[in-house]
Amino acid sequence: MAQIPVQTIHRDPQLFYWILIPITVVMILTGVLRHYATVLMATTPKKQELPAIREQRSLLRGINLRTNANAISPASFQARKDYLVNAYEKGDFLKEPDKKGQAAPNPMTDPAAMEGMMGMMKGNMAMMIPQTLIMGWINAFFSGFVMIKLPFPLTIKFKSMLQAGVATRDMDPQWMSSISWYVLCIFGLQSVFNYLLGSDNAASQMAQQMGQMGPGAGAQMFGPGVDPDKQFKAEAENLAVLAHEYTLAGVEQRLLETVKV
């Protein structure tokens, strides 16, 4: 089998100074700028009103009672259960007692929920706008340049990824175009940002992607669109059917068995 001749392309060394380095520097600078823009734009989380705090914590109290009921005596548990179940069913802890029984408000019209969505929008915008701009800039100035040769062989599948913007069929996939270098920069500068801005910086995209994927469980529980009255009713039911078993029953025997003097 004949040896495939190694492709050589004579490149102007100026390409290196005027394309590769500028793209990298611009990418780093935008990352830093984006970090500070996000920090500046971030709104402090809106403070909760006292009734809202009361509503959440009263529900948590019920959950605490349910999980840790065994620590208190049956009489105390019974008293608390009666009180909480009654209060939950009457809706005493609701933030707006007169709105009891109505459906949960549409999260789109709820101003408190809009606030959170605006925050997310801002974050996304801070990501998207610079990327679009730089992409346009690179497309306008540097499209079609072959910039570097990777020092390792690659299969043909990598061609579309590494040679974006260079429509040459026979070129070895080791050669890289400027747009590909840009894409590589987007994903590869993570550690540079970590070094420059600290590990919890706003420029790193991983955090943002994670944030979009799974908001915390706490947000789910009291998030917009959840009807607190229904939650209270469910908790009341959980409490009502709970079987109580006192931890202190027989503790003195347990202790006498375990303690060695």
């Binding site: 049956p74 025997q253 303690v259």
Partner: peptide
């Protein structure tokens, strides 16, 4: 009554007292 635990018997209390005394002095 069902709601409260019965009083511990005298022997258990004595043994607990002995244990506590021994442990405290240790």
């Amino acid at each position: 009554s069902d709601s409260t635990l019965p009083l511990p018997d005298l022997k258990t209390v004595e043994r607990l007292n002995e244990t506590a005394t021994a442990k405290l002095s240790e």
